[in-house]
């Protein structure tokens, strides 16, 4: 199965048509307690989006609801203009590490091969082609040497990279990641960031639930602030403001340090000098 290395340049943002992810009025309740309420989200293709918010804000639930993993009380989700059921080939998912039992008797390569199961269909077994695709995905995350290791013998960062490779092998247009940077070592963090940049260069869209506000401007193009309801969403430079953060974190913001000029320099999202914030305590 061959894939084009580059995609056509993405459409201009905010034009509605050609959105990678379009969420409208998404509502999820758990035992009468609202977890997500009336959430709208429009994600143009070809960029990296961070979803941030305090604990319990519904960030993970947003991903799971978009992917149909938890039932939504209301709302619609379109992936590249189609409902999820027709767009499964275009959607990838990197869950939190705690979502599986790592003592399961399987190897890293095995787990990554699971990403090929959809294109295999029923009953067919993964063959050499699938194994090779899995192996090259592992190479991309720097885990080729550990392919045959049983997964409980991997470090936290390595396990995270296995999940990443599994999503990579699917080679989807849109990938959702749930706190991929949580508790990983520096090597893994660099690997993930490189991967994200690579995906963006190929025109893919990545939506990431992110826990570390510090690095949002460094790693991401867009940000969505979420606290049961959507507070704000858009390019980091516009949306990642003190005001919005205060709204999102509901006054639980401890203090804000201003390190540099509060007015954003144009296009300088990777420039630490233009980064607004030092440490924010949620």
């Amino acid at each position: 199965m061959t894939h084009p290395d580059t995609r056509p340049a993405p459409a201009a943002p905010h034009t509605g048509a050609g959105l990678a992810v379009a969420v409208h009025d998404l509502t999820v309740a758990y035992r009468d307690k609202p977890v997500l309420w009336d959430v709208d989200l429009e994600v143009p293709p070809g960029l990296l989006l961070a979803v941030v918010g305090p604990n319990g804000a519904g960030k993970s639930t947003l991903l799971k609801a978009i992917l149909g993993l938890v039932p939504a009380a209301a709302g619609q989700v379109l992936i590249h203009g189609e409902p999820l059921a027709r767009a499964r080939d275009r959607v990838g998912y990197v869950p939190q590490r705690g979502s599986v039992d790592w003592d399961f008797p399987t190897s890293a390569l095995d787990v990554v091969t699971m990403g090929t199961y959809r294109r295999l269909g029923w009953v067919r077994r993964p063959g050499r082609r699938e194994r090779e695709a899995a192996l090259s995905a592992l190479e991309r995350v720097g885990m080729a040497a550990l392919a045959d290791r049983q997964i409980s013998q991997l470090s936290g960062g390595q396990q995270q990279r296995v999940f990443l490779a599994r999503a990579l092998v699917q080679d989807t247009d849109v990938t959702f990641m749930d706190e991929p940077f949580q508790g990983v070592d520096a090597v893994t963090e660099r690997a993930i960031v490189d991967l994200l940049k690579d995906l963006r260069a190929r025109g893919r869209t990545v939506v990431v639930v992110h826990h570390d506000l510090q690095t949002v401007p460094d790693y991401f193009d867009w940000v969505t602030l979420l606290n049961v309801r959507r507070i704000a969403s858009g390019p980091v430079a516009e949306v990642f403001t003190e005001e919005n953060l205060r709204l999102a974190y509901g006054g639980r913001v401890g203090f804000l340090e201003r390190k540099a000029d509060p007015t954003p320099a144009p296009g300088g999202r990777d420039d630490p000098a233009t980064s607004h914030f030092g440490r924010i305590r949620p």
Partner: peptide, 17 residues
């Protein structure tokens, strides 16, 4: 392979359809 995936990661299995 279907049962293997189901036992290891049912959420991912659901996602794959």
């Amino acid at each position: 392979k279907e049962f293997k995936l189901l036992s290891f990661d049912p959420a991912y299995a659901a996602l794959l359809g």
